[in-house]
Deep mutational scan, measured.
Amino acid sequence: MQVTWGNVTVTFSNPEEAKKYAEKVARKLGGQVELHNGQFRIK
């Protein structure tokens, strides 16, 4: 499962870890987490 924002992509084998990481990054950037085609995207 991947977490992407800007031109950065981070890949996780565990979807739960990916979700936690995406939420943490979104909080830092003041963005929203979207699940899109099996990727968490931060907008």
Rank of each mutant, 00 (worst) to 15 (best):
M1D: 04
M1Y: 15
M1S: 10
M1W: 15
M1C: 15
M1Q: 06
M1K: 07
Q2A: 11
Q2F: 07
Q2C: 14
Q2S: 14
Q2G: 07
Q2I: 13
Q2Y: 07
Q2P: 04
V3M: 03
V3N: 00
V3C: 05
V3K: 01
V3E: 00
V3W: 02
V3T: 01
T4M: 10
T4H: 09
T4A: 09
T4G: 04
T4K: 10
T4S: 13
W5L: 07
W5M: 05
W5K: 01
W5Q: 02
W5I: 10
G6E: 06
G6C: 15
G6M: 08
N7S: 11
N7D: 10
V8K: 10
V8N: 09
V8D: 03
V8A: 05
V8F: 12
V8W: 12
V8S: 06
T9E: 04
T9C: 15
T9D: 02
T9N: 04
T9Y: 05
T9P: 01
T9W: 05
V10C: 15
V10W: 13
V10K: 11
V10I: 14
V10T: 05
V10Q: 05
V10Y: 11
V10S: 03
T11H: 11
T11W: 15
T11E: 08
T11G: 06
T11P: 04
T11K: 09
F12M: 03
F12V: 02
F12C: 09
F12T: 00
S13I: 09
S13T: 13
S13V: 09
S13M: 10
N14R: 09
N14L: 07
N14Q: 07
N14G: 06
N14T: 13
N14Y: 05
N14F: 06
N14H: 08
N14K: 08
N14E: 07
N14I: 06
N14P: 02
P15Q: 11
P15W: 14
P15R: 12
P15K: 13
P15M: 14
P15C: 15
E16T: 12
E16I: 13
E17N: 09
E17A: 13
E17L: 13
E17V: 11
E17Q: 12
E17F: 09
A18G: 02
A18E: 00
A18T: 01
A18Y: 02
A18M: 02
K19C: 13
K19P: 00
K19G: 05
K19E: 07
K19M: 11
K20P: 02
K20F: 08
K20Q: 12
Y21K: 01
Y21S: 01
Y21V: 04
Y21Q: 02
A22H: 00
A22M: 04
A22C: 04
A22N: 00
A22R: 01
A22S: 03
E23L: 11
E23A: 08
K24I: 12
K24F: 15
K24Y: 15
K24N: 09
K24S: 12
V25T: 05
V25M: 14
V25I: 14
V25H: 02
V25Y: 04
V25L: 14
V25S: 02
A26Y: 02
A26S: 04
A26G: 03
A26D: 00
A26N: 02
A26M: 03
A26T: 02
A26W: 03
A26P: 00
A26H: 02
A26K: 02
A26F: 02
A26C: 06
R27L: 12
R27V: 08
R27G: 07
R27F: 08
K28M: 14
K28G: 06
K28N: 07
K28F: 14
K28Q: 12
K28T: 09
K28I: 15
L29F: 11
L29V: 12
L29T: 11
L29A: 05
L29N: 04
L29Q: 04
L29W: 09
L29S: 06
L29M: 09
G30D: 05
G30N: 10
G30I: 03
G30F: 05
G30E: 04
G30K: 08
G30Q: 07
G30P: 02
G30M: 06
G30L: 05
G30Y: 05
G31R: 05
G31T: 06
G31H: 06
G31V: 07
G31N: 03
Q32L: 12
Q32N: 08
Q32S: 14
Q32W: 15
Q32P: 03
Q32A: 09
Q32R: 13
V33P: 03
V33Q: 01
V33C: 06
V33W: 07
V33M: 05
V33D: 00
V33E: 00
V33Y: 06
V33A: 05
V33S: 03
E34D: 06
E34Q: 07
E34R: 05
E34M: 07
E34S: 07
E34Y: 12
E34N: 04
L35V: 13
L35W: 10
L35I: 13
L35P: 03
L35G: 04
L35Q: 07
L35M: 13
H36K: 11
H36G: 05
H36Q: 09
H36L: 13
H36S: 10
H36W: 13
H36N: 08
H36A: 09
H36E: 12
H36D: 09
N37S: 05
N37C: 15
N37L: 07
N37W: 03
N37I: 04
G38D: 05
G38A: 03
G38Q: 04
G38P: 01
G38F: 05
G38K: 05
G38W: 03
G38M: 04
Q39C: 11
Q39I: 14
Q39R: 08
Q39H: 13
Q39L: 06
Q39V: 14
F40M: 05
F40Q: 02
F40L: 13
F40C: 04
F40K: 01
R41A: 06
R41G: 03
R41C: 14
R41D: 03
R41N: 08
R41P: 01
R41M: 14
I42N: 01
I42C: 05
I42E: 01
I42A: 01
K43Q: 10
K43Y: 13
K43T: 14
K43E: 07
K43I: 15
K43D: 05
K43A: 10
